[in-house]
Amino acid sequence: MNFRDIISGIAFLILGCTVVGVGNGFDAGAAYVPMGVGILMCLFSLSLIFKGVTQRLGASESSSIAVALIDHPGRFMATVACCLIYYLAMPTVGFYSTSTLFIILLSLVLGERRPIVVLGITVGFIILLYGLFAMVLKRPLPVEFFLVS
């Protein structure tokens, strides 16, 4: 955990320096706040790094168990990957078709194995979305591939 504080402190320090560096080129009025915020960020990240280092030095005598940053990397990565594929496919395949496939695929990836439950909830949910967005709110969403002329 302390090691994480050091790393996150360094990341914030880099961000703070970047904010100051880029903000230096702004006009006087527009630069005050970005410069101030950047400098404060550097100061607080240094304090976080210092705290992390002192705790790390203290913890070397007694072992400590760090909590995993991601509990289940497989499911996490699969969910993020499915989201990216969903967003990439949506403009060409269409909102309702992509959403249907996305729900079915991700629920299977996450371990749902009852086809009737998956199909029932997916179809019901998509009909609800269609009713709300296409019929009530009349919001334009990416058009379905089979409707593109």
Binding site: I103, E112, T122, L141
Partner: peptide
């Protein structure tokens, strides 16, 4: 397992609109 994708779809449609 179904709540996750349905919520993500809701977020996508909400943000897209």
């Amino acid at each position: 397992a179904l709540l996750v994708p349905t919520t993500l779809v809701l977020m996508a449609v909400g943000v897209y609109t």
